[in-house]
Simulated assay, not measured.
Amino acid sequence: MKKLQLIAIMFAFSFTACEQSYIDDIQAVDPGEDMEAPSISFNFPLEGTQIRVVEDITSINIDLEVTDDIEIDWVALTLNGTEIARFEEFLDFRRALLEFEYENLGNGEHVLEARAQDLSGKETVETVNFTKIEPYRPIYENEVFYAPFDGDFTELVRINNPDVNGTGVGFAEGKVGRAYRGSADGFLVYPADNLTNEEFSAVFWYKLNGDPNRAGILVMSAPDEDNPTNQNYREKGFRLFREAAGPNQRFKLNVGNGSGDNWFDGGPAADIDPSEDDWSHIAITISQQTCTVYIDGEVVSHGTYPGIDWENCDIISVGSGAPRFVEWGHRSTQSLIDELRIFDAVLSQEQIQNIMQNEMN
């Protein structure tokens, strides 16, 4: 009895809702009245999409919307000339939100086609062209990070995209292809979970803009909990930066050993003249016994120390000391940076010179 009462109440509510236009009536439409072909809109991939992952074969989630003025009959997806999916049942026969996971996408150029037909036989075809980029394979032993800055900021070994901070950062003609172009307040922050190793080396090309007259370049510091708005905690990680030395810019390395910090300042040997307007090759190597700074393949600073402490050094800043090394004004550089590579080993001088030579050819 209670069940019958409930059904009656629901029916009465539904009737009242329809009478008061709470629910739209569904009415049959003569296919002869069908005036328009279906409409297809891709949400992913889009024209020109570039898919970059570490695998040679990956999956892709195809996402599209199909609408029709009367009723959709079917929708088919074709990839590179082969049908991969067909849809013939729809919850809403005028608007279909369709998703399909294709699991065997290889490297190269791809053509995705969606074809939709309505009940009157009208068809629409939409096509997108996209690319799965071949994964980067490290070309040097112990290479764990590579950012070429060739039109994007992606780190290619692990496919990491940084947080882009500030405004105005972009790209310019580089030493090899394109390069990172700094700005007055911009910088990049990458995760550093794979970089805190017993040994560390970084190499890159740098085209100096002396304005501002001091700036951070590469920084892996721990948070300064006592001074969170103006950080400068130097007992962990490292800080590579530059500052004025007369008309020149002097490049310095500071490394935290857990209870203090150690300085590697080469004096005039580590100076670069901003007026030369040329590319310089910068390299640093850090072991648990020594640190070395190179400019254009030559040692400009070297010394022993107790060993680096990486505790809580979970990010690496590129193009600035921010956010963790700013108290002394070593903020954003407006210089160019290109071909940034990081290694989990100490590179020899010969290895650094070989990398330089390879990228100059």
Score class of each variant (00 low, 15 high):
G216C: 02
D296R: 04
Y206R: 01
E327A: 14
P191C: 10
T290K: 10
F87I: 01
S259G: 14
Q351H: 11
T333L: 09
E225N: 12
Y190I: 04
F100R: 04
L46T: 14
V219D: 03
N354Q: 15
P223S: 09
I272F: 11
E350C: 10
Y146G: 03
E198G: 14
N262I: 07
E141Y: 07
Y305A: 11
D309A: 08
N104M: 12
E33G: 12
H281R: 04
T292K: 08
G81D: 06
L336N: 03
G166M: 13
D68P: 11
I316G: 01
R52S: 13
N80R: 04
L97D: 06
M35W: 14
A215C: 05
V53M: 10
V125K: 07
T292Y: 03
G266A: 01
D185G: 03
A322P: 02
D92Q: 09
Y136P: 00
I295F: 07
F241G: 12
L91S: 14
P138N: 01
S275W: 11
S275E: 15
P268I: 15
E298T: 09
G267A: 08
L208W: 04
A172E: 13
L347F: 09
N354S: 13
A184Y: 12
F90H: 05
E36Q: 13
L188M: 11
H110E: 03
K122F: 12
A345E: 14
G321A: 00
R178Q: 15
R234F: 11
N361C: 07
L218Q: 04
S280E: 10
E143P: 01
G297Q: 05
G168F: 06
I282C: 05
A12S: 15
N254I: 12
E65Q: 13
V318F: 01
S335H: 02
Q20C: 09
P31I: 08
I23S: 09
A37N: 07
R250F: 07
N230S: 09
L188C: 09
G237P: 06
V144G: 07
I316T: 02
L218N: 01
L156Y: 13
G319I: 05
I316E: 00
P306T: 11
Q349H: 11
G48E: 11
F204Q: 00
E99R: 03
L77C: 05
S287V: 06
N80F: 02
V75Y: 00
G267C: 06
L98F: 00
A244I: 08
E99Q: 07
D278M: 15
Q5F: 15
R115Q: 14
G266W: 00
T154S: 14
H110C: 05
P148Q: 05
A12Y: 12
F145P: 02
L91D: 13
S14C: 15
I308N: 08
P162H: 06
A114Q: 01
D314K: 08
Q20K: 14
L336H: 04
F11C: 15
V255K: 00
A222K: 09
G186H: 04
E126P: 03
Y102R: 06
G182T: 02
S41R: 10
F90E: 04
V128P: 00
T131R: 08
M10Q: 13
